[in-house]
């Protein structure tokens, strides 16, 4: 198999999982990934427009066969309402990062320039540090993190990817239909 095909097969997939908002449901999903040997690259969980439904956005690594198994195994969990795979769909993916970076007086202007170029924001400032908030794709976050690392990053936190299909298609609508 050529490298390009390998690369294509070993890609990352973003899936959205709508689940009943019950205690323990995150453990069920996480446990499924662990025991079946699937890799979670990123995981974000939140409420939705409906309080009884939670939404998980999971980035998984693996080929299409692994992705198919993950989807099917997730669907077997009694509390999983719906699994949506965004590999084949046009979708918006976003991640947020908070970066605490050293800001010595001589560097401040430069850092602020980077912040501006990346449309990030400085949301906290001390005599030695900035906290920078930045939103965007994983790639964008990686880039700004790379640039800022030269000044010394003291702390970094990222939310993990959340995703939504472009256009009028909705995952939660489908979940709602299933629930009704």
């Amino acid at each position: 198999m050529t490298n390009s095909i390998m690369a294509q097969l070993q890609q990352e997939h973003t899936i959205t999982v709508l689940v009943e908002n019950h205690p323990g449901v995150l453990a069920r999903v996480a446990g499924l990934f662990a025991r079946r040997g699937y890799n979670i690259e990123s995981l974000a969980v939140s409420v939705t427009d409906r309080p009884e439904v939670s939404r998980m956005t999971i980035v998984v690594g693996g080929d299409l066969r692994v992705l198919e198994q993950i989807t099917k195994q997730l669907n077997k969990l009694v509390e999983v309402l719906k699994v949506v795979d965004y590999s084949e769909t046009a979708a918006v993916e976003r991640e947020l990062a908070l970066i605490k970076v050293n800001s010595e007086a001589k560097d401040r202007a430069e850092i602020m320039q980077i912040v501006e170029i990346f449309r990030a924001r400085i949301i906290d400032m001390s005599d030695k540090t900035f906290i920078i908030e930045v939103t965007g794709s994983t790639d964008k976050l990686d880039k700004i993190t790379g640039l800022l690392s030269g000044y010394g990053i003291r702390e970094l936190v990222r939310t993990g990817i959340i995703a939504m299909a472009r256009g009028s298609k909705t995952a939660s609508r489908a979940g709602r239909d299933a629930a009704e």
Binding site: G24, A27, R28, G31, L32, R35, L77, V78, E79
Partner: peptide, 14 residues
Amino acid sequence: ITGITMPITKHNFL
């Protein structure tokens, strides 16, 4: 026990 049996039950309830 619900934690312990999560991977060996079809579903469980506390």
